[in-house]
Design a binder for these strands. Structure first.
Length: 425
RNA sequence: GGAGGUGUCGCCUAGUCCGGUCUAUGGCGCCCGCCUGCUAAGCGGGUUUGGGGCUACAACCCCAUCGAGGGUUCAAAUCCCUCCACCUCCGCCA
């Protein structure tokens, strides 16, 4: 939810923001009209209601003739009040619906344009030169089979396409990555969390996942309950309807949870292996802080991701995502994309968004400031999305015989193993 | 799943039977001030949140808010219905 005051006072800012995202600005005028209608309906209702209250008190004191006369007036008034109240609710709902579709204005620093207009901020690590090393790299699926780590056939048999089993070294790898990520975040002062992954509409809506993104969300049949696509949802909603002590900010959490995505609209995309799947586990960072601190906090989350990817010894780049490619809630987003040898491309491994007060406004999460309460800022960032991390690790650290070198930092979490060896020829 | 109970402005609490000066009581905490060698105690005042009007986004006025949503009524914290959460007991279960 954008700031209603900003919409009313500076509609041109919102118009410009819409344009920067490549969206129509006409919604701003619709919203302004709806806001005016809403305020008119409030005044109409409140005037009638105030009169009703005054008369009501007179009724309580009046006797005989006088009372009968008053009752005649108040009875008619009661119907008007009821109608005015209904009209007010309707106008407020109409306003809310329109404003809810307006995304968070992108940060000034965010590049304008769409998906391809990102700016590369940094490249880290070195790509393997398999030609120089004298062998053709295998893709993660083949490596996963050789190691006995990934089983997509049985995943499909039991659950359908885009499902998988992690077995032996694959399962060990997930647990190692999760433990290592949680350790890193814990040491950085994050509070560890295991959140629920079935949530009510409020949590989904509040984080902005029931808008255009609704198609990607699993809904439980016959229930008003959703499976989350990221623990950002239960983490953001954790403090909903709360006023957080200014002294308690920033609040930093790190959660481990499964994530569920329908991947509607991505048919035929990334169908091989476990790069794009309906379910995966993820370790996610989440911060509640002040609006003023949010930009610095965004850099901190990014720094955590960079430190993490460095430990995995991956080759990757950091991009500043363009306005048109931001989610509904994000004001700015940095993605870390790892080099995937089999694809010859950089692909997203982690992502961190500054949602400023957009989600907090929807979820009613505030803090007390000089001038009353103000919405806090929320930020999220991936530490590790398991399948993509496994893809990158297997492909990046593979050796000619199909074995995979374990990055040094990960070894203590893998029972000291330095290499994962193929189990079959 | 069954039976019963509870839900009041940070926390605790009065009020609900029997609708109307409830403009929601009191305590704790917190904030401001007074008093005071210091501290404690004491005294006085303030302290839900959201929205609207008017405006300097102040002050002031108004409306809503007693778990949520409906209903009855001139009038609802109070009566009725539905839902939600929590507690106790029973049943079932990883």
């Amino acid at each position: 939810m954008i700031d209603p005051r900003l919409l009313r006072d500076e509609p041109d800012l919102i118009r410009a923001a819409q344009t920067k995202r490549g969206l129509s600005a006409s919604v701003v005028d619709e919203a302004l009209a709806a806001d005016e209608a809403r305020r008119r309906s409030i005044v109409a209702f409140e005037e009638l209601r105030a009169e009703q209250k005054v008369l009501g008190k007179q009724v309580a004191r009046a006797q005989g003739e006088e009372k009968t006369a008053l009752l005649e007036r108040t009875k008619a008034l009661a119907a008007e009040v009821k109608a005015a109240e209904a009209a007010q609710h309707e106008a407020e709902e109409a306003y809310r619906r329109i404003v809810a579709t307006i995304p968070n204005p992108a940060a000034d620093a965010a590049p304008a344009g769409g998906e391809d207009d990102f700016v590369v901020l940094e490249e880290r690590g070195t790509k393997r030169d398999f030609a120089a090393e004298g062998f053709e790299p295998r893709d993660h699926l083949e490596l996963g089979r050789m190691l006995g780590a990934i089983d997509v056939e049985r995943g499909a048999k039991v659950s359908g396409s885009r499902f998988y089993y992690l077995t032996g070294p694959g399962a060990d790898l997930e647990l190692a990555l999760v433990n290592m990520a949680m350790d890193q975040a814990r040491e950085a002062g994050f509070t560890t969390v295991i959140p629920p992954t079935l949530v009510k509409p409020r949590a989904m809506e509040g984080t902005g996942f029931l808008g255009q993104a609704a198609d990607d969300v699993y809904r439980i049949e016959g229930q008003d309950t959703y499976l989350v696509g990221t623990s950002e949802v239960p983490l953001a909603a954790y403090h909903s309807d709360e006023i957080l002590d200014a002294g308690s900010l920033p609040k930093r959490y790190v959660a481990f949870s499964p994530c569920f995505r329908k991947e509607a609209g991505s048919h035929g995309k990334d169908t091989r292996g476990i790069f794009r799947v309906h379910w995966f586990d993820k370790v996610e960072m989440f911060t509640f802080t002040t609006l003023e601190e949010s930009e610095a906090e965004h850099q901190r989350l990014l720094a955590q991701e960079i430190a993490w990817l460095d430990k995995l010894e991956l080759a990757y780049r950091v991009i500043d995502v363009a306005a048109g490619d931001l989610g509904l809630s994000a004001q700015r987003k940095f993605d870390c994309e790892a080099w995937i040898p089999s694809q010859g491309k950089y692909r997203e491994l982690t992502s961190t968004s500054n949602c400023t007060d957009f989600q907090a406004r929807r979820l009613d999460i505030r803090t007390r400031g000089e001038r009353g309460t103000t919405p806090v800022a929320t930020l999220n960032g991936t530490l590790v999305a398991i399948p993509r991390a496994i893809v990158a690790i297997l492909e990046t650290h593979q050796q000619a015989d199909g074995s995979v070198r374990v990055p040094e930092a990960l070894q203590p979490y893998l029972q000291g193993r330095t290499v994962l060896e193929p189990v079959t020829g």
